[in-house]
Design a binder for these strands. Structure first.
Lengths: 186, 186
DNA sequence: AGTGGATCTTGACAGTGGCAAGTTAGTCCG
DNA sequence: CGGACTAACTTGCCACTGTCAAGATCCACT
């Protein structure tokens, strides 16, 4: 740990630091050099693992999609539970979530990222697959994804604070459940 | 136009150029100097109008909220129409939309931005206000906002492209209407 | 033991945002 | 008509950032 050379775990250390910093200050204020300094290495060390600024975001997004997939699978097969799990993930991992759907930050053609995105998409599909007796299942699936994604985004950016739409002290997961209930009973 | 000094319209010229560039390359790749060059002025000229990088984003977000408010008011008083108008705005003004809900980019305490945000919030409220016979109107309002915001965000970032959830050539407004219909009939 | 490759450092370069000081243009007021 | 005042813009500079190239260090393997 106190040794000069990091021996393997630098990659995850930097990733973790990046997620922390993004959660605190936002993506725009993230500096690779600051990240390196915070991780106790020279300014060019991260480049060896991620190559690029885009490479770092790509790795972070990939990790995010894998974490999301795990979270969704754990939630089971009920649409409501899966939806709430999506919101829970977004709020628990703001640093990852802020990067995952930003095509301008990550390298869109990265095969690892595409695979992880596909995995989480599959997990989402598995959880929402059974929609018997619904007129337009595809619309419901789209709506479910959109509503949890939008709610998580808006919540995280503080869009609800002065809106009178909800109690500032409310539990986001509980609100998410209320919203999803509004949706699926169609 | 060919004169050396811009005389007044530089502010809007730069704002327009910024919206264009953000729509093309994303927020992260926006350079104030490139913007200035593209507008035909020196690198420090924008600073006089916006002060700061954050100042530019603040102005752009403010303009965006005003445009959104106008669009929402024009849509009338039906929740479906207002919701679709929200999506239409987001897709028509991607450069503005990308900045409007990013608290890390704009100056959150700016009074002009707060006022514009309040105006568009009011417009949204006016359009969605009448929800008679609904068990949990606040939840429906939250869900409506969340679903259009999420759908517009996901669409813009290309999250739907390989997902089999919808036809890649589909008209986003039509899809948005389908989604909203899924929602309000509760 | 020593060779090879992975990991990290050092040093340099162009580009960026931000600041200070100077320059130009228009306006107002005698 | 002319001179002062102010807004708009320019020039020059600085610290910082991302990126690249070259060198140093460590580890594994034979």
């Amino acid at each position: 740990m106190a040794d000069a050379y990091h021996h393997g775990d630098l990659r995850s250390v930097v990733l973790h630091a990046a997620a922390d910093q993004i959660a605190q200050d936002g993506v725009d204020r993230l500096s690779l050099r600051g990240l390196a300094q915070r991780s106790g290495v020279s300014h060019a060390a991260p480049a060896h693992h991620f190559g690029d600024r885009r490479g770092l975001f790509t790795a972070l997004a990939t990790e995010g999609f894998d974490l999301l997939a795990a979270e969704l699978r754990e939630a089971g097969t009920d649409l409501r539970d899966v939806a709430v799990a999506y919101v829970r993930f977004a709020l628990a991992r703001p640093g990852h979530f802020a990067v995952m759907f930003r095509s301008d930050l990550a390298r869109a053609d990265d095969p690892g990222l595409a695979a992880a995105r596909r995995r989480s998409g599959q997990a989402l599909r598995d959880g929402v697959g059974r929609l018997e007796g619904v007129a337009d299942p595809a619309a419901v699936q789209l709506a479910a994804w959109s509503v949890v994604h939008g709610f998580a985004s808006l919540w995280q950016e503080g869009a609800f604070v002065g809106s009178d739409l909800l109690d500032p002290a409310a539990d986001p997961e509980a609100v998410a459940r209320r919203i999803v209930d509004t949706l699926v009973l169609t």
